[in-house]
Design a protein around this nucleic acid. Sequence first.
DNA 1: AGTGCCGCCTGATGGC
DNA 2: TGCCATCAGGCGGCAC
Length: 465
Amino acid sequence: MPELPEVNNIINYLKNHEHLTTKTICKVDVLYDYTIEGSKDYFINALKNKRILDITQKGKYIIFHLSDDLVIVSHLRMEGKYFVKNEDVENTKHDLVIFHFTDNTKLVYNDTRKFGRMILLNEKNYLSVPPLSKVGPEPFENISIAYLKENYQTKNIALKQLLLDQSIISGIGNIYADEICFDTKLNPRTPGKFLSDDDLLNIVSSARKILTLAINFGGSTIKTYHIAEDKEGNYQSHLNVYNRENQPCKRCGYPLRKIFLNGRGTTFCPRCQVDKSLPFVLALTGPIASGKSSVNAYFVKQGFISLDLDNIVHEVYKDKTVQKEIKNIIPSLKIVEGNIDRLYLKQYLINHKAAKNDLENYLYEGLYNLVLKKLRKIGPGKKVVMDVPLLFKSHLDDFANKILLIQINPNIQRERLEKRSGNSDLYLKLNKSYFEQEDIKKADFVISNNSNLEDLYKELDNLNI
DNA sequence: AGTGCCGCCTGATGGC
DNA sequence: TGCCATCAGGCGGCAC
């Protein structure tokens, strides 16, 4: 839907190209009642013979200023559009409100999803009554650091959600919120209270910069937004993150991630957008018997806190809601003394591929949230090392500041497994998909652990992490 | 009070 | 091919 830059372009077009501010309304047709807030009859009758004097903007709202102190406050929501047409052009399917003018033209409000709303108010008080009374300053207005601190640093909710809150700063929607987070190198999940004063000032200057650029490029046309019927915006090709899931970050090359924050799709770079509520995280990954636990021990000696993923996985399985969900998928599963029969589960999943996929995704999600919770509890300023076999599949690389990948010669791996368990074939089969070749380039450091512990530690000394 | 989730609508897209 | 689920530039209201 239109955000501030798109609304700005629409208003410009209606004023300067369609010359709407020279026109007088003679009749209004309301074809979908819910579009009009308040009395539909009042809306229709009061607008007769009113002249459009000016069109202005507040955040994402369009304000038509009319003669006799009337104003129409209009919000396009997701799909609203205004077109000016000649009277002889027939209405189309989603034309909801038609303003007929005395010069044989009409302003058509078209809205496929019917979310848009408009209300007729008075020039004298329209800013002090809803909906505009609840709308905060645009990024371009004077915003004091005290105002930002009060509205961001006292909140435990995600930066992304704060940026979308129109009562704090208006005009920023889902596209530009993601772009601002990228530009300021802040993870959209960061709770407001972890943002520094500098972060807050950066957010405002970044918002000004990005929205100005977007205005100058005519806004972003992703699907349906058009300045006019045959005129698209051009900023979409300049977007750094929005609509670029899995594509390489333009700053560091790491594949961009898409998650959902409060029900809104959110795309960001997990490596160069820092979550300030979290400690520095070094993630270790590599195949079975590659020596991850030795490397883990090395970093614990260096003062890192070790996050034991095995334990956390057990915790996920012990969670009552998780168990309930698993039991929904597999009713025959037994839960003994609060513990899931994981051997039965494993065997069941070998024969039920679809269930395996669903369950894995569900468990990864649980693991992801629990790890986030644990890292938040440790908090910023600390250093954490975590050994994650399925780092990329579980998306736990979202939390990693640095990734250390350990490689091993397959023959030596087999030897070590034989010594450990006496059955290397089974383990190799079970752990086949720990990571893909293409994941190697996601790592910051790659080491080979084909020799002894002394050589391994020497190699780690040289990394200077 | 602060937060999370659902409903409002239609159409495009992708998986089976 | 169709059928079904999911997703989309937003926001208000409701329940805890």
